[in-house]
Design a protein around this nucleic acid. Structure first.
Lengths: 356, 356
DNA sequence: TTGTACGCGTTATCAA
DNA sequence: TTGATAACGCGTACAA
């Protein structure tokens, strides 16, 4: 244990002693360069360099100022899974850019893997942050409570709606409804829905009535509602719409699930998918079954991730990056319950057409 | 600015006053439950709850103990790009798991986007961490210097080799050599190489002699060396091996690059790709050109990401997760310059065969 | 089992 | 322009 890091930490005081000034002056040299003569500042900085002083200690600075200069981004998924989702990445990108502008650090905190091992992620309570962005966290997650207890500003993106906490999201129900309506207008009458997970139990299969009544994620619930609402308005009963639930938002899962949907007695001519990844996976499976898109089966995604364009997939465009930047803005704004509902956009591409 | 968070912070002292004990006792209630009667501890915790005390302040605790309870993971790419790379994700997963075991937080720090806007990422200097893992950072990056200046333990994964700093990596040269040798043994004589970026200038095109002489990433240099070494041993001169450099590790880039390689006067029968993503993209392009894999063109990847298996791609398996966990271990071990070179494994699948 | 006193490294206030 | 002094909130010998 003879590593260099063990040598007693060099502090402001050491530098001050070396130069022969008070530690306050040294502090000013860093914080308020205008408050002292340039010559003295030079001498101080030179001495600091010589002594190996690398600037104010973060912890001490934070204790003195009361600000951490960082912000926490909390999501409930595992790291690897979360980062395989282009949608999360876009949001994160928006957050990162805004943080950059604000000269603020960004701490990524995954509640997913932690929750399994411990009662609560240490990160949440310990992290030196001035505020949290909760991204698509399950409402019943312990994280929500913990984050609130931290007594720092909070902003929620997508999930869950918390009273008194600013919210950034989209109108999921209306967006889903417009997607369904588009297919209805093309003349489709036989639908299938690919739903994202309604609970955290890894279930894969038909979305039962019981499960439908207990959807943990409000965005999922809203999208489903939007789809079914449009169909109902067109005289199609929810019971007649085969719906398959997928535990993981991936292409593979989408491919597998759509096969079940296409096995229905009345094969759907239109598929409503709750994400582009699922839709893209489904498109591949549809084609490998010898069916054509959109001739035999039309398909509609959700998100408008980059891959949607290359796959010519019709979808709902979400302003992912803006979700992130708005979240940071609200965190800084510090007002109580302002909500931001961002506009979505219907993106029509070659994956939809009139039924055969 | 009338948010609840403005109310003066509740401290140990407040709780102590409420209960009528000293602040030390309250501290013990949290840190050393055994040091006081269960009954008193209950009373203290109850009072804390009532007062809204959420546990010791992270900054103050860190200042007093000298430990942050967190570790920084530094990479030089942009967040969205980094997280689209399955290899990074696996490493990160290994790190995350180890952190979890150690009850340590994990701060992800991207130097990429920051470096563009500022002289240096604030994160690096500010982050409240007890040590840094530098993951595949360019040797000439300012981050390297900054991280060293922070005067906390460092561990490097993959890049760059720093004297006195523990290193975790693989034998890139030997791994690449084995890949090339495998193809040589199958009888191939005409090769093409798909190289990852040798500099940060976004260059895409033939790897010129000038660029070859100034490769910024040692892993890239080593892999190239390994390939060419094997070929040279078989009597094939480096000049006769068309090599295409790709600025971004993505399927799209691999697809585009391989087209140039296949346009060579002597079409290569074997392609050596420095990553699976590039190889997988290339496979698609090869097939869309009407060529068969491996009948017309054999291809060898690097990494063994999950997709390699589904694409039946021969590759070099890297123990990505172990890279992460070893890095954390070395950080904790705290010894000076111990290096860990992990074993790779030749994974032979259907993407290679004898030349036509 | 509980309390006193001090130190951690910095910033902020105010006086010189 | 510079410096003394007091927080900031907590951990921890050591004493009681």
């Amino acid at each position: 244990m003879t590593r260099q890091h063990d040598r007693r930490k060099v502090t402001l005081k050491d530098v001050a002693a070396q130069v022969g000034v008070s530690h306050t002056t040294v502090s000013n040299a860093y914080i308020r360069p205008g408050q002292l003569s340039a010559a003295l500042r030079e001498r101080i900085l030179a001495a600091a360099q010589e002594l190996g002083y690398t600037g104010p200690d973060p912890a001490a600075k934070q204790l003195a100022t009361g600000r951490a200069g960082a912000l926490g981004f909390l999501f409930s998924e595992d790291l690897p899974y979360a980062f395989s989702d282009p949608a999360i990445l876009s949001v994160l990108n928006g957050v990162a850019k805004s943080c950059d502008d604000l000269e603020t650090d960004l701490a990524l905190i995954s509640a997913g893997s932690n929750l399994r091992n411990r009662a609560a992620p240490v990160s949440l309570g310990n992290a030196a942050v001035d505020g949290y962005i909760l991204y698509s966290v399950a409402p019943d997650s312990r994280c929500v409570l913990m984050a609130q207890q931290r007594n720092v500003p909070l902003v929620v993106v997508d999930q869950p709606r918390l009273s008194g906490v600013p919210y950034v999201g989209i109108d999921d129900r209306d967006s889903a409804r417009r997607a369904a309506k588009t297919l209805l207008d093309l003349g489709h009458r036989h639908f299938g829905i690919l739903s994202l997970k309604t609970a955290h139990d890894g279930y894969s299969g038909p979305l039962t009535a019981m499960r439908r009544a207990n959807i943990a994620h409000s965005t999922i619930a809203m999208r489903l509602e939007g789809y079914l609402l449009a169909l109902k308005e067109a005289g199609i009963a929810p019971e007649d719409v085969p719906t398959w639930e997928i535990p993981i938002n991936s292409e593979e899962m989408g491919a597998e699930a759509v096969r079940h949907l296409l096995k229905q007695p009345r094969r759907p001519t239109a598929i409503l998918a709750m994400s582009d990844r699922v839709a893209i996976g489904a498109m591949g499976a549809i084609r490998s079954l010898g069916l054509r898109v959109p001739k035999d089966v039309s398909i509609f995604g959700f998100d408008d991730i980059p891959a949607a364009q290359t796959h010519d997939l019709s979808t709902i465009r979400q302003p992912h990056e803006r979700k992130g930047s708005e979240a940071v803005r609200l965190l800084g704004a510090g007002n109580g319950g302002e909500n931001v509902i961002l506009e979505t956009e219907l993106v029509l591409r070659g994956s939809i057409g009139t039924p055969a």
